[in-house]
């Protein structure tokens, strides 16, 4: 049995658990806890260790989706989660400009772990206050080759699109490796 792995990361409450839940064939094995600290009391639960979702591709291949915990005190999990991943998705809550700096920090940290491709999901695009993906691109100072995709984590089609775009980027990376081998 072969396993492939992708990591879904992003700031607190950006929609990671929702995103994995939209495509996972098992209920997300999530380690949610009720939130007690008042600063983060904007929703009922938060992910404390990680989220875990699965998509069976065939008898011999599964894709695992890992979501990182949102709160900073679980940063130590990131390094472990990122090992051996095919690529990663950075989720951003497009309606919360106060989290963009944090998103940038997370993105840079993950870039440091591995040179795998990644995409940014501009999540919650269904909400009125959402910043446009292209504005987020500038604020997050994304390099031109990094894709930023509109996303609504509660809408499966947009989640599929984000994953497919990430996989395209991975294929492009393989193309590059291939042509490097030939030269």
């Amino acid at each position: 049995m072969q396993a492939a792995k992708m990591v879904i990361t992003g700031p607190f409450s950006s929609g990671k658990t929702e995103f994995i839940g939209a495509v996972s064939e098992i209920d997300v094995v999530s380690t949610e806890r009720k939130i007690t600290s008042s600063a983060e009391q904007i929703k009922e639960t938060t992910t404390v260790a990680m989220d875990f979702g699965r998509i069976t591709v065939g008898d011999d291949l599964v894709l695992y989706l890992f979501g990182t915990p949102g709160q900073r005190r679980f940063d130590f999990m990131w390094d472990i989660l990122s090992q051996g991943m095919l690529g990663f998705v950075v989720m951003v809550d497009s309606t919360k400009p106060e989290t963009f700096r944090e998103a940038k920090r997370i993105l840079e940290t993950f870039e440091g772990y591995a040179s795998t491709p990644y995409v940014v999901a501009a999540n919650k695009q269904d909400m009125e206050d959402a910043w446009e993906p292209e504005d987020l691109r500038i604020i997050l100072r994304l390099r031109p080759e990094v894709k930023i995709l509109p996303c609504v984590a509660t809408d499966k089609e947009t989640v599929k699109n984000v994953l497919l775009e990430l996989l395209y980027s991975i294929l492009e990376e393989l193309d590059k490796e291939e042509s490097a081998q030939h030269n």
């Binding site: 998509i55 894709l63 497919l164 996989l167």
Partner: peptide, 12 residues
Amino acid sequence: MVERIMDRIRGL
């Protein structure tokens, strides 16, 4: 492997 995963996700 990547192509197989893509096919699978398209079919979700």
